[in-house]
Amino acid sequence: MTDPVARLTGHAVTEWRPMSGDLREAVLDDGRVVVVKRGHAPGATTAEAAGLRWLAAADAVAVPSVAGHDEKWLVVDRVLTGRSSAAAAERLGRGLARLHAAGAPAFGAPPPGGLADAWIGLAPMRCVPGEDWASWYASDRVLPYVRRAVDAGTFDAAEATLFERACGRIPASAEPPARLHGDLWTGNVLWDGREAWLIDPAAHGGHRETDLAMLHLFGCPHLDRVLGAYEEIAPLAEGWAGRIGLHQLFPLLVHTVLFGRSYAGQAVAAAKTLG
């Protein structure tokens, strides 16, 4: 693994440190500590690097800098982790509001240099521009994962029909395309004692409420402070709380595809919130 890191960063590795899964920490000969990630599929590292750079370009939230990448490897600066705090959560909320306001060319648009065939975690994610949010969300963020779950035997025909009917009831939205992290569950928010850092994006143009609904789904430290600070900068549209289930359909269906029946009930319940 030393050769690709040296090639991508221009610096030799002086020490390797274990992390979880396919991640490793590497100490470079200039003293920097980086995280080295091997992509799970062709294009995964390219998509993630493009997403990190797109988020960083908004100058709104803290993200690790990309030290180098190719088709197999991604090297980013390490984030030192510490405790969360209410003050950091408020900065995160204001930062997310600015990030979303930075916008995207269209719903479904990939970051500059990103790919149409991208990933959210280990699941494929299509990034192709759509004309309006409701039809794009149904066709690109709900139904593809329903079909995968049906093919795997996780959903039966009746459940598939429920999702198809729910897609016909997705309300139109006047929101412009937001610049989304795209996989904003609590595990992708790292706290260093002062700031919240966002890692592992599945960045694309989407509805800003989707990022916030993901924070609700698996919990986030000081979530009330995050949302309060967000709304100081960019108030959410009336009835936002009633649409959380709608926006959680996407991550719940992704989890159903990746992890099976344990998430299917939650996904069905979210679909039923559409009436």
Score class of each variant (00 low, 15 high):
V128E: 15
A158K: 03
E231K: 06
W185Q: 10
G245R: 04
R126H: 12
P129K: 13
T154N: 05
M125A: 15
I233Y: 07
A138P: 07
L162M: 02
R179T: 06
P201D: 11
A229D: 01
R169S: 12
D211E: 10
E159C: 07
L190S: 00
H204T: 14
W136L: 04
A166R: 01
I244Y: 04
H222P: 10
D224Y: 03
Q248P: 04
L217I: 12
C220I: 06
R126G: 01
H204S: 11
A149L: 08
A152S: 07
R243T: 08
M214W: 08
R243H: 02
S139W: 02
A134E: 13
E231I: 11
E209D: 08
A234H: 14
A158D: 13
A166M: 08
R243A: 07
R243K: 11
R148S: 11
H181P: 05
G206M: 02
D192A: 03
H207A: 04
R141F: 00
F218I: 09
F218V: 02
D151K: 14
L246V: 12
T210A: 14
G219L: 05
R141T: 03
A178W: 00
A202K: 07
N188F: 01
V142Y: 00
R169I: 09
L217Y: 08
D156E: 09
L217F: 11
D192G: 01
G205S: 01
C127Y: 04
Y137W: 14
D183Y: 02
A174L: 12
I170V: 14
G168P: 02
L227G: 01
I199G: 03
N188H: 11
T186W: 07
G168V: 09
P177T: 10
G182E: 05
P144F: 11
E164A: 15
H216G: 05
S173G: 03
D156S: 04
G239K: 10
W191K: 02
G187D: 10
V226Y: 05
P201L: 10
A149P: 05
G228M: 07
